[in-house]
Amino acid sequence: MTAVGHTGHSRNAADPRADRGSAAGGESPGDGTRDYVELRGVGKTFTHGRQSRQILDDVTFSVREGEFCAIVGASGCGKSSILRVIDGLLEPDTGSVRVDGQDITGPNSQIGLVFQQFNLLPWKTVQENIMFGLESLKLSKAVKRERCQHWMSVVGLEEWSGHYPHQLSGGMQQRVSLARTMAREPSLVLMDEPFGALDALTRRFLQQEVVRLWQEGKRTGILVTHDIEEGLLLADRIFVMSANPGRIAAVVDVPFKHPRDEALQATAEFAQMKEHIWHLLTAEISKSSPYVRMRNEPSGG
């Protein structure tokens, strides 16, 4: 049973205060602001032929306006499915999803999703890919061009505007993907393991970029990651997910102020938080994996 308590500690997801952020009296991002994203009892089952598998079960949580949250869990626990449900790409079998007070029934121009695999069009240049992201918006060409130029500049790719994705590194491609999403100026940004395919150095650089963009733009964000450190470096709150089926098992408030740099990563408090979340995760994995339970049981008995 996870502890209920002050900022920096985790709460059991069943605690009625679990989706209202930190304990009363503490300063935390978005304190006093409304819930911008609300998931209530969301469930999803995938059927393939005669086999079905429940991916999500009774997922309930909220994200406040202006908050940046992370969902951390093992591979296959349904983290990406949650993002797709919020983005309207997947319809939940049970429960409801509301963003900015509106029920989500399909993709929405106020929501942007950054994919793990960049998903750039190989036959379009950097500039064309970003412009492609703006096509569905009812904006004048001049405004679209201006936004495209602005975001290419923000991610540092103006000199590469005429290049194709295959001429760019992985980090550069992810920057294009980020620019394409951000150029739409969504009020809610969803990121599905956006740095998973990148090397450590590029990942760190882009993490810092994301934090900078966040602090400038004051958007609401949800990041899905299997990297606990990434969650601690970026997020205000971390939702720990169990698997088989996916549920929110615990909520952890992250007490550290931005900027969160390498010096923070070297502190005991950071290590403690990481260890705590790790234990939460492994406890969930043990519950859902008979193999792990058998391996952890004392032999001979």
């Binding site: 983005d87 790409l89 993709p107 929405n108 121009s109 942007g112 999703l113 994919f115 998903n119 492609f132 992201g133 096509e135 569905s136 394409r180 739409r184």
Partner: peptide
């Protein structure tokens, strides 16, 4: 999936 997310016609 990306085009659906971007609401491309």
């Amino acid at each position: 999936e990306m085009t659906k997310s971007l609401q491309v016609s």
